[in-house]
């Protein structure tokens, strides 16, 4: 199994090297939607994920035989259906408190979507205090969304392909204590707008900070088309759940995910 994944990654890496000239700007790229062939990210550096990191972080959506992968495929279908029906393309994943599995859900969902047919996915890590997405994939990118926000890099420079077709990551690097201010900044809004405009058929998944413990999460919500609330079974208190549902009421809450059920 591991060997197979390594082989695949190696093959992809070779392909990336073999097609260096296929870099395209978003402008000349028309609709990706109808294209049968997987997209080729000329401008996005490829950093192949480490399967060991998937194993360690229990990322299972890429395993065809894993029962949880099936559940994610089911979730993928529901999410796709809801988003495409209303022509929405960005989805913010959050939870009432810390450690309820929102990043894990975001990674698995993004992976599941990308592995499905004809869907490109951008996974952006907006939990700037504790960014974990890159770690889940076992990669260590040099630039992250925080560099872009601080004007040290362009957006494309910050993106990375983990070696999976139709999946691009926008990781965060290091920890930023003042993420609250950043999330509600105009820069963030413009980032969201830009990401949306750049790839018309791409689903953008934002891994957001906790809704109730980080005050600014709510400030970013207007920039997303829909929200998904992740709860860990036996961790979230009833009051927290109620408050979270209230806060998300105006932001197209498409549903909840109950995580880590015994």
């Amino acid at each position: 199994m591991e060997q197979l994944e390594k082989a695949v990654a190696k093959a992809r890496a070779q392909r990336r090297i073999a097609q260096p000239g296929e870099r395209r700007s978003p402008g000349e790229n028309g609709t990706v939607f109808a294209r049968a062939t997987p997209p080729v990210y000329r401008e996005t550096p490829v950093m192949p994920f480490r399967p060991a990191a998937f194993e360690a972080n229990k990322v299972v959506a890429n395993r065809p035989d894993h029962p949880v992968a099936d559940i994610y495929r089911s979730l993928r279908a529901r999410v796709q259906q809801r988003l495409l029906r209303d022509n929405r393309r960005s989805l913010g994943i959050t939870s009432p408190g810390e450690g309820e599995g929102k990043s894990w859900t975001a990674v698995n969902l993004a992976l599941s979507l990308a592995l499905g047919e004809n869907q490109t996915v951008l996974l952006a890590d907006l939990d700037l205090r504790e960014p974990v997405v890159a770690r889940y994939f076992g990669i260590e990118p040099k630039l992250g969304i925080n560099d872009y926000l601080q004007g040290r890099a362009t957006l494309p420079e910050c993106m990375v392909n983990p070696g999976i077709d139709r999946l691009v990551l926008l990781p965060a690097v290091g920890s930023l204590g003042n993420s609250a201010e950043l999330l509600s900044s105009p820069q963030m809004s413009s980032l969201a707008r830009e990401l949306k405009q750049r790839y018309a058929d791409r689903i953008i998944i934002y891994d957001l900070p906790p809704l109730l413990t980080v005050g600014d999460t709510i400030g970013f919500l207007p920039n997303v088309d829909a929200t998904l609330l992740v709860l860990r079974d036996g961790k979230t208190h009833a009051g927290e759940l109620r408050r979270a549902v209230e806060l998300l009421a105006g932001h197209e809450l498409i549903g909840t995910v109950l995580n880590a059920v015994h």
Partner: peptide
Amino acid sequence: RVYGQRQLAGLSGQPPLVVIPRV
């Protein structure tokens, strides 16, 4: 604390989209 999808459904007004077992 919230246990199980029935409690969740009762509190949030709708059943969860999916229930994911512990991995």
